[in-house]
């Protein structure tokens, strides 16, 4: 659970602008344009949501937007696939409980 700073093939991690995201109320920095899941893995977040009935933790599984295991509530919208949704400045990301709740302002 860390960023890969240098890599034998890909080279040093390119410098990009950092953006601020709010994860469960905590303010964190993420690399502009990276997927929410990547940003959260880099911060060491262990799970992204808990299931409806048995409250089991879930994280990423397929990483390409197919399995929906990594969904979270993002800017008030539940069930957002974090592995294919890029972070944005000021984005509010919440660990989702069950189906989640719509909180989007009208």
């Amino acid at each position: 659970m860390q960023r890969i700073i240098d890599h034998p093939v890909l080279g040093p991690l390119p410098e990009v602008k950092m953006v601020r995201i709010i994860v469960d109320g905590e303010s964190l920095m993420a690399r502009e344009g990276e997927m929410i899941a990547a940003a959260l893995i880099a911060t060491g977040k262990k799970y992204f949501r808990k299931t409806v009935k048995t409250h089991e933790p879930r994280g990423i599984y397929c990483g390409i937007g197919r399995c929906t295991d990594c969904v979270m509530t993002v800017n008030g919208i539940p069930n957002v696939r974090t592995c294919v949704t890029p972070v944005e400045e000021g984005m509010v990301i919440e660990t989702q409980m069950g189906y989640g709740v719509w909180k989007q302002e009208q």
Binding site: M1, I4, G63
Partner: peptide, 25 residues
């Protein structure tokens, strides 16, 4: 198998090579 940390090999590959984060050690 549903615990976070169990993932497709391709998902791990996406994380390390595309997103430059290690999903685990």
């Amino acid at each position: 198998w549903s615990l976070p940390g169990v993932m497709g090999a391709g998902a791990a590959q996406t994380m390390i090579n595309l997103h430059r984060v290690l999903p685990g050690q």
